[in-house]
């Protein structure tokens, strides 16, 4: 639908990728761990290999949770923007099709948060 307006109504998106100086946004969400109340936004280089996400990015974001250290990464189930997804650690964000403002949601089977409260 178009915006109801008195004249032509087109504007550039405020968050188009060009506004991020060569970087892109990626959102992360660890399912069943509501200690982190919402998905987290990061600005990352599109050339970043996925191994760095596993090795650097996620520990920094989620390391405070006592279950984080127990994660067996080979069993983790990933979703990219709602679609099942298998990330190859050596590939970059671009190569994996992780576009600007994509959401990576991951589930850790057997680790469902604290106190049976998905926390």
């Amino acid at each position: 639908m178009t915006t109801t307006a008195i004249g032509t109504y087109t504007f550039p998106s405020r968050d188009r990728i060009e506004n991020f100086h060569g970087l892109q946004l990626v959102y992360f969400l660890w399912d069943k761990h509501l200690m982190f109340s919402a998905p987290i936004t990061l600005v990352l280089p599109p050339t970043l290999p996925f191994s760095e996400i596993l090795g650097e990015v996620l520990p920094n974001l989620y390391g405070a949770h006592p279950q984080f250290a127990e994660i067996d990464w080979s069993t983790v189930e990933w979703e990219l923007d709602g679609v099942a997804f298998i990330p190859m650690p050596t590939l970059t964000l671009t190569a994996l099709g992780i576009d600007h403002k994509s959401l990576l949601r991951f589930r850790t089977p057997g680790l469902e948060g604290l106190a049976q409260a998905s926390f």
């Binding site: 639908m1 178009t2 915006t3 504007f11 968050d15 506004n19 991020f20 970087l23 946004l25 936004t41």
Partner: peptide, 17 residues
């Protein structure tokens, strides 16, 4: 009305820009 909301000044994105 997508044209209206793609102009949203989202504070988190603004910080990261």
């Amino acid at each position: 009305e997508p044209e209206k909301y793609l102009q949203s000044w989202l504070p988190v994105h603004q910080i990261l820009q």
